[in-house]
Design a protein around this nucleic acid. Structure first.
Lengths: 203, 203
DNA sequence: GTCGAACGCTACGCTACCGTAGCGTATCGT
DNA sequence: ACGATACGCTACGGTAGCGTAGCGTTCGAC
């Protein structure tokens, strides 16, 4: 491939990504990209058809893809590996600052929503497979609701990130898995006592 | 108070809120508000000093505040009440569509961030109190990490909402509390087996 | 009824941003 | 070397949005 093209694309992507990371999607203006990347505006428009197109490319390039677990590996270990990978995605300064914008734009921009759906689909597939294998091996309850399980794996991490409740590190990944196994383990007490009624004394 | 002021403020707020709900923060333009509210632009600027000010007011007005649990009520019941309240906040069409924008704007707009911090503070206070009471009553483990507990209460709900994994209803609120109690209950198996090592056989 | 406050209207000035035209220059592949 | 392709530059045209000026009108309070 023509090295000029390669150079231009990477310079623009670098500048555009930094702009969004630093100032949010609103900071991604073509003029700002021109200044920062030192690439002429006309040249940029030879590679991306619009500003929105460029924004979509920036996000797409930063979206993490969960690693596919090795089929013959221990399920619990695989789960921990995947969760640690998620944690590291959120530790990545680029993705961590892109994610909030990504969440919002997915609501109103069709292009970004499509990226979101592809990501969700991949993540859910990986996690669903692990949850089902865990159920088959008796590590978690057999009739487990896969979506619910996924929510309990991803949710605490996401909220810890968004709210800044706790440090995002391997420790949190492991503790989430621990809690997950405790909550969904086959010996998880007498499961649902859904009708709101306290177990013991009230005072 | 002058009813003209009351009328103007509510008409503008209604229009502005609808605009953000329908099209995101970018759709909140003064001209659009003028058209929809039938209030003159000059009048709007007599009540809000800028467009950003109006946006902040819109968000502030929609942010849910968790109910303060009654001190003499059963802890588990209170927890369920609070979680159901959170669920209903997300069922509210206004807040559910404002939340993503809120998440993003909190990163780059100081005004919105301040609102976010006030909300987090109130939510965390309510939940922390309940978690601590639960610990004191022996419903959950005694040395419980309050922030971790909060993450496990709010996280699954948040991710279910953001990803659209499951229907947002009272059922999910209750099941989250169930899972929480199972994961953090005093008899929650042999707690952390943090070093990644499977319990039984691997294959 | 009268006075003051709130409101409405038109018309701006200003800025930021998008995306393009036209034409000359530099660089790559062969 | 040399043709093709990519790139750079300047200068725009057009739009959208913010916030204000100035002045007349209406409405509420008393």
């Amino acid at each position: 491939m023509d090295p000029r093209v390669e150079r231009t694309r990477s310079a623009v992507m670098r500048a555009a990504t930094d702009l969004v990371v630093e100032g949010g999607p609103g900071a991604l203006t073509m003029d700002a990209v021109v200044l920062r990347s030192r690439v002429a505006k006309t040249t940029i428009y030879r590679h991306w058809k619009s500003r929105d197109d460029l924004l979509a490319t920036v996000i797409e390039a930063s979206v993490p893809r969960l690693p596919e677990p090795e089929p013959d590996a221990d399920v619990e270990t695989s789960l921990r590996v995947v969760m640690r990978y998620s944690v590291n995605s959120l530790r990545d300064t680029e993705w961590s600052r892109l994610l909030p914008a990504f969440i919002m734009l997915s609501r109103h921009e069709a292009e970004i929503r499509a990226i979101n759906e592809r990501m969700d689909w991949q993540h859910n597939r990986v996690l669903a497979e692990l949850v089902q294998r865990a159920a088959a091996e008796g590590i978690v309850e057999s009739g487990i609701d896969v979506d619910e399980a996924i929510a309990h794996l991803q949710g605490p991490l996401m909220i810890a990130f968004l709210a800044g409740l706790m440090p995002i590190d391997d420790r949190i990944a492991d503790s989430i898995v621990d809690r997950f196994l405790a909550a969904f383990g086959p010996s998880a007490a007498a499961k649902p006592r859904t009708p709101a009624a306290g177990p013991g004394g009230d005072a």
